[in-house]
Amino acid sequence: MHIMEGYLPLQWCIIWFVVAIIVVAFGIYQIKKIVDETPESKALLAVSGAFMFVLSSLKLPSVTGSCSHPCGNGLGAALFGPAVTAVLATIVLIFQALLLAHGGLTTLGANIVSMGIVGPLVAWLVYKGLTKAGISSTIAVFFAAFLGDLLTYVATSFQLAFAFPAPTFSAALTNFLVIFAVTQVPLAIGEGILTVIIWDRLKAYKPKLLDKLGALAPNEA
């Protein structure tokens, strides 16, 4: 759920941009460190980013009949960690704005915060927590993608409620949350299932790569 161009008032655009730039700068610093150690990983990062973009152009079959797309943030976070995913998501969002008119330039900051920072961070925490607890990575990745998606919508509702606090902040927040709950929970479940299918095949075909990225559960490595 992208916030579209011009939807937010100026002060909120600036606030979200500042937050986003700080985190993305940290992510770029992290990427620099990775690339200095293994120069080959630059191509891998670029291609994974392209994968995220392309994934978002696929249509996800949804329970309610409305059509939406997977965002691939959960998968990215489970593979590369939240900081790197934030940078990749930033590039993906710029491309979506300029190639698909999806999202916008002024709301880029807000979209990065909800989709590139909150979502992947939650997904990563859930994934790491569950795999540490000894749960298989396939199940962990479902909850990572599901909760990552859900929290993205919660973050978006917060952003919209901050921008339109009428009649009160909490009333606006409940309004937005109810609407998102109806439309987005089925989508989040759909994305979870899709991520599990992808993960299953990755585990079957490229177990060494997952191991190298440190993305498998300790008891599966």
């Binding site: 291609v47 994974s48 994934l55 696929l58 299918i197 990755l202």
Partner: peptide
């Protein structure tokens, strides 16, 4: 359609590697 989409996405990912 879920199965096909999953197969599609994972194949694309393997190809992308």
């Amino acid at each position: 359609s879920f199965r096909s989409l999953g197969a599609l996405a994972s194949t694309i990912f393997l190809r992308s590697l």
